[in-house]
Amino acid sequence: MKIITTRILLGLVVLGLCSCNSVKSTSPTNNSQNNPQTQPPIKLAGSSSSVTVLKVLTEAYQANNQTATFEFVSQGQSEGAIAALKNGIVDIASSSHKLKPEEDNGKIQYRELAEDLLIVATHNSVKGVTNVTTDQLKSIYAGKITNWKELGGPNAKILVLDRPEDESAKKLLRKYYLGQDKTTTQAVILNKEGELIDTLQSTPYSIGAFSLAYSLINQLPVNRLNLNGTAPNKANFTNGKYQMVRHLGLIWQKTPTSNTQKFIDFVFSPEGTKLLQDKGFIPHN
C-alpha cells in the first residue's frame, strides 16, 4: 500500500500521540505574560477525527470570552490524547471512542459530547454516481471494481483513499459495510482525516470516508454518496436507517482548573448544544 505521512516536527512518545506540533488559537492575544488580563491557555489534545468539534467550540467560546486562549497540542489518535491528559500535558482530551476501563486512572472523567456521521464521498469529478450498495462499496475497497464506468460513472480509474486499520473511520466502514475483506493494495493510506479530505478534494476520481460535520462546516465541494439508497443525514440517523456514526466525547481531570471548568460548562450548556446542532453534529442527550 502507498502510505502518505507527515513529518513530525516535535516528537511526543505517549501511546498513539503522533504529533505534538503546538497550534496556537487564532485569538488576537495569546500570551498571558504580555497581557496580564489574558487567561493561561487551556491545552487540548484530540484525535484527528474529533479535533473539528474542539475547534468549533473553542472559537465560539473565545468570541464571548476574549481573554480565553487555547493551545492545540496534538491531532493524533484518541489513545494518545487520553495519555497526554493523564500525564498532565493537556487539560482536555477529545476522543472518537468511549473511555475504556483500562484508560481510566480514576482521576479523569469522560462525557459523551455528540455523534458525527461518517460519510463516503468522492471527488466532484465522479459524475453520475450518487448511490452505492454494500456489495459495490466492498468491491471498490477490495479492488474488484476499479473503474467508475462499472457504476454508471465516467471511464476513469477509481482511487481509494483509506485510513489505517486502527482508526475509527476504518473500523466503522468494516463494521457496517466492508466486513473483513482485504483492502486493495492500490489504496492510498492517510494517517490523518484532514490529509484524506485534502487529498480527496485535489485528486480526481478518488473516494474516501470522513466526517459529515466537517463537510458541512467547510462546505466541501464533494459528492456525498447515499449508501444502499440512504442519505447520510440527521433524519436517517434518528430513524435508524443510517447507522455509521462516530461517538465524540471529552475527557478532563476530575479537579480541573477554574478556566477549564468554565469552558466545560459552556460546552455542555444549551448554547453549546445549539452550536453543535447548527454545525451538523448530533449532540448527545
Rank of each mutant, 00 (worst) to 15 (best):
K149E: 11
G179S: 03
Q75D: 07
L200I: 12
I145Q: 08
G179P: 03
L137F: 08
T185W: 00
Q77D: 08
A187S: 09
L173Q: 11
D198I: 12
N131K: 11
G179E: 02
N65S: 06
T203Q: 13
S94R: 02
I197C: 09
N147P: 07
G128D: 10
E112N: 15
T122L: 11
L113I: 12
A60N: 13
K98N: 12
N87Y: 12
I197M: 15
V132K: 08
L117K: 04
S125W: 07
A84M: 07
S168Y: 02
Q75G: 09
E71I: 13
R174T: 07
L190G: 02
T203N: 13
I140P: 02
V56A: 15
L178I: 03
T122G: 11
G143S: 01
K149C: 03
E167R: 06
G179T: 02
L178S: 04
V90G: 15
A187E: 01
S139V: 00
E167T: 10
A84H: 11
K107D: 15
D104M: 14
G128C: 10
I82D: 02
T183D: 12
T184F: 06
E167V: 05
E115V: 10
K138S: 01
A81S: 09
R174P: 00
L57M: 09
H97C: 08
S139K: 14
Y110S: 13
V160K: 07
A83K: 09
P164R: 05
E193Q: 15
A81D: 02
A114E: 10
V73A: 04
L137Q: 08
E165M: 08
L172Y: 03
Q77S: 10
S139M: 09
G153A: 05
K157V: 01
P101S: 10
Y176N: 11
A83I: 03
K55L: 11
N191R: 15
Q66M: 12
S74L: 01
L200K: 05
D198Q: 15
K144R: 13
Q75R: 14
I145G: 12
N147S: 08
A156L: 00
E103I: 07
N64E: 15
T130E: 14
T122W: 04
G76P: 05
A169H: 06
T183V: 15
V126M: 08
E59H: 06
T146I: 13
S74E: 01
L113N: 14
A142M: 06
Y110K: 12
G76H: 05
T69M: 00
I158K: 02
A63T: 13
Y141A: 03
I140Y: 01
G88N: 14
D104P: 14
I189L: 01
T133V: 07
E167M: 06
G153M: 06
N87G: 03
N147Q: 09
G179N: 02
N131M: 08
K149H: 10
L113P: 13
I197S: 09
E71C: 13
I92D: 09
K98E: 08
G80F: 07
S96H: 14
Y177D: 00
V129H: 10
T183G: 04
